[in-house]
Design a protein around this nucleic acid. Structure first.
Lengths: 167, 167
DNA sequence: ATTTTATGTCAGCCATATTGACATATATGC
DNA sequence: GCATATATGTCAATATGGCTGACATAAAAT
């Protein structure tokens, strides 16, 4: 099944295959973010807020430096967005116990609710695509994307919580 | 190999699997665009210029309406970017023959050169990821991403040039 | 001849990013 | 304890890439 030239041996990859792969990524990413964008606009928020909410949700108690390292934006850029989320009580800041200079970030109940709402639209879209494509395809999707991610990001985000299966 | 629960049957997908899939897409997309972004800044261009150059390169002789439909931005937004590219001679505009109101867009030599340079960095990154992941993974990557793309985009971009394999 | 379409343009607004400079509180090293 | 480094915050200016609304022009279509 599928195109023989392009699927038996990846060394036979044609220009066209690569172009298609690039476009797939572009359109998938765009469509993937469009629903959350619409929800966010109800709150007067943008995609930046989503990213902050998402990664704080994923990393409860994360401090500002760590969050900046993940997002790769400047603290000035983060501060406006984070400030809004704290002021409007989607995110809670508390002093670090070991290091009281730190602000440890957590979602509030309100934040958790919004996070769920935002993720839900993406979760169901991705789950549906996974379901249609099948388990093998899912592993292929992962393998290719992992290969495209810089060593640094791969370690930070996917390294530590290495899956508990192999060897 | 790999996690049994999550790979044998996609209906067993856990929250964690989906989260990982979401993050993979986010980081892969970000890293995928970072090199071109750096190149573009040499020219004083941004990602928007890249998209215009890319899709004009992919669709020689495309008119403005069609380009807008692909990019899904307003003509006012496009006009600034496109205007720059035309003025600086990366893109050539000529009157449509059938319909002289239309501006048919093509890359100039200069535009083709830049397009190649921009795509090359992405092309090699994707080709490398494809090579590492293997042919089956490539098909899986495609299948999942296609599933995430809206019907509309799927038809416009991937429908017409339907691959010549199945049935 | 009128209307619709394809395109362009002016003006203003918003979100998100940037850099640079500086402030404050706390931790850490000597 | 003092000096320095770190974690964070904030002010100001700037750039990019979107947006809306309004209006203009040329050409096509009816």
């Amino acid at each position: 099944m599928a195109d023989i030239k392009s699927s038996i041996n990846p060394l036979f990859l044609r220009e066209e295959d690569i172009r298609q792969g690039m476009e797939l990524l572009y359109f998938a990413y765009r469509d993937f973010t469009s629903e959350p964008d619409a929800i966010l606009s109800e709150y007067g928020f943008g995609r930046a807020h989503h990213r902050v909410i998402y990664f704080v949700g994923r990393n409860p108690g994360i401090n500002v430096s760590e969050l900046l390292a993940i997002l790769k934006i400047t603290k000035q850029s983060l501060s406006r967005v984070l400030g809004q989320l704290v002021r409007e009580e989607f995110i809670d800041q508390r002093e670090g116990t070991r290091d009281r200079r730190q602000r440890l970030l957590n979602l509030t109940e309100k934040g958790i609710t919004l996070e769920r709402r935002l993720s839900e639209s993406q979760r169901s879209r991705l789950a549906e695509a996974y379901r249609e494509a099948g388990a093998e395809a899912v592993q292929g999707y992962r393998d290719v994307l992992v290969g495209m991610i810089s060593e640094e990001d791969r370690q930070r985000v996917f390294g530590p919580k290495k899956d508990e299966s192999d060897t």
